[in-house]
Design a protein around this nucleic acid. Structure first.
Lengths: 372, 372
DNA sequence: GTTAGCACTCTATCACGTCGAGTGCTAACA
DNA sequence: TGTTAGCACTCGACGTGATAGAGTGCTAAC
């Protein structure tokens, strides 16, 4: 499994360079590596190796007299084989914090599954990066738990559905004032019986026949009501986005230029783009890492995305993505996302993290990363 | 009504300076005023007047050889007496745009009254500034239009209420599995009858007696359900905030420093602070302008806030505030907020805007601004 | 194969000089 | 008495050049 091109020493040096660069944000020189990482080699030797690594495309130089910085290829190798995940979270959240998260996850029901929203907040806090959450399956495979039509005032009602990820959608119904609340109730009860337990995608318009027959309400009068219910169901198929900690982008020296910062924040506000970005990675149930230009959104070429998709009891809650400049603390992000997985599923261990460790013996690469 | 301290000429010059500074973002020199605003005076004369205005505290100088910029006192006089509101919107939104806004306002029902949220988006677009909207009365005076308990699955239900500003709140109910959906329905119907039309603040806990008696359900079993309903009603009393166009702050040269920009964006994320900021001004039903340090939030000393509170048919929809650096295009902001008022109420005119105009004859100050 | 030494390159930083905008003051003018 | 032209002065913006420091690649010795 060891990389053909690189021997052990080159890998060690590459890992040291990337670790240091992630930590210091400064191009890394040969002297730094020799001294700080006690390789037992002189800076001159390291210089030679670094020149090789540059030739092979793993490192690059901002300018002649600067140290090296990792290239995308370097980062790719790093996340696939080199990075060490031990203790990268740095701290366990306090018990109170955990309790708070747990309570909030279980207690609220909102537009988006609140579990995934709260989880996203947690990820952002743990990593100090921006996190983006998108809601559940949003592909029509969610099941309807309950449906109800709530009469609001004459001629106006509210369609409410609850999905299996405990998210709630509603839509306004403007109907004929002749329709009484009692009739609405009947329709509501019937639709609930009809739809509950079914997938969103299974609900089809011709069910109106059955509703009309069963309730004895004329089809034309029923139309707006059914329309409202369908609008509501349609909303269930919409993907919701929630961005947390967008401002944290301004902390990165990579975005110390206001124009650039503005650009990225405007991108983050583009819900359609963010959905695309995260969704593209949400097929697999594991972690997906996209480095720099591996992700296709223009303007995000200097950023990396790590996503994790979460399911509980077979219900897809959603996908959380962490977004930051390419110089991302990958191990920490991976650890945070795995930690949240543990929280969400209530089981599963990250106590003995897998993935590499080159320097600790093995060379297994169990972190499922999208291989470009 | 004319200011004691200032004669007509000084006011003209002050107005010209502020107009120009708002437009160009540059300290304004005497030559600029003389040439651009055709005062019929030489730059030397204007220089003398400007020196007076500075002495009186209406203008200040960044440094010796720069032009003048308005002080807070200068802005205050400007918004109270000097600014001209004619045609400040610059353009009427296209018919399609208006239609879009109208449709969205009427059609959606969400956590916050969508009317106020959509209005806030419109304001931000018209002014190119950040706008902050807070929801309705949120003081317990909203009335409940409808209430319903929706059974979700055994032991779980959802309380849904619709308020008079068409906002929807919901809360989860974890109840005894022995309670059947039919019982829930009975409770729901009873509560709806009991609560509908009443103010949120009127609902009191001892109503549980009546519910228990009327439905024949034991009080202990009923407790979680009533709790859920109360939680829901409690949420109705929460103020919701919606911020639109926060990123626009990054366009202002005043925030070209990333650190400063970060500070302000973090402030904008502090919902509690924003609620305080806007709420403080939401007592009056007119416009309130706070300039620089007139608003009490630390870190917003170099910003101004203009707020407008909107009610339709006696129902308070909410308050919209526009936030920008002190160098704000006040006339445009006022025009935009008045325009939105026209849109929301469907009547009322801003076609003949009031307020000053010093240079067009009158000197009335009808814009209700908070006098510090 | 490794390392010490050295010349070289490139950036960041700071001091310096210049330019231009705008002022305040004075003296002349209507 | 109010207005204006003229002028010396101030101060920030900007471009230039010198300097220091970090890091490299190469060569020769170990």
């Amino acid at each position: 499994m060891a990389n053909e091109e690189l021997d052990y020493r080159k890998m060690s040096i590459l890992k040291a360079v990337i670790d240091d660069y992630i930590e210091t944000r400064e191009p890394v020189g040969s002297r730094t590596i020799a001294k700080k990482y006690s390789m037992g080699l002189s800076s001159a030797t390291i210089r030679n190796e670094m020149a090789d690594l540059e030739e092979l495309g793993y490192l690059s130089q901002p300018h002649t007299s600067a140290g090296r910085i990792p290239s995308e290829k370097g980062y790719r190798l790093y996340v696939d084989k080199l990075m060490a995940l031990e203790d990268k979270l740095g701290f366990e959240p306090t018990p109170e914090e955990l309790e708070d998260v747990k309570v909030r996850m279980q207690h609220e029901i909102g537009e988006m599954s609140d579990q995934i929203r709260v989880a996203s907040e947690l990820v952002s806090r743990l990593t100090e990066y921006t996190s983006i959450a998108i809601s559940g399956a949003a592909d029509g495979t969610q099941r309807i738990k309950a449906l109800q039509v709530v009469p609001v005032e004459p001629g106006k009602a509210l369609a409410v559905i609850v999905l299996d990820d405990d998210s709630v959608k509603n839509a306004v119904i403007q109907h004929d004032k002749a329709i009484t609340p009692e009739t609405l109730m009947k329709v509501s009860t019937h639709c609930n019986l009809l739809f509950a337990g079914h997938r969103v995608e299974e609900i089809s318009m011709n069910m109106i026949n059955s509703v009309s027959e069963a309730t004895g309400v004329a089809r034309t009068a029923l139309m707006p009501v059914i329309d409202g219910i369908f609008e509501c169901i349609k909303k269930a198929a919409d993907t919701e986005v929630h961005t947390e900690g967008a401002v944290k982008f301004l902390s990165h020296p990579e975005f110390s230029d206001v124009g650039k910062a503005k650009g990225i924040l405007e991108l983050l506000n583009r819900e359609d783009l963010m959905i695309d970005l995260i969704k593209e990675c949400s097929t697999s149930d594991g972690l997906v890492i996209r480095i720099g230009s591996e992700n296709k959104i223009e303007g995000l070429n200097e950023c990396s995305v790590v996503t994790a998709t979460y399911s509980v009891n077979g219900v897809k809650l959603g996908t959380i993505g962490v977004l930051s400049p390419t110089r991302m603390d990958y191990p920490r992000v991976v650890a945070a996302l795995e930690y949240v997985r543990k929280r969400l599923t209530g089981a599963g261990a990250i106590d003995a993290p897998e993935g590499m460790a080159l320097l600790s013996g093995g060379d297994n690469a169990q972190q499922p990363t999208e291989v470009k």
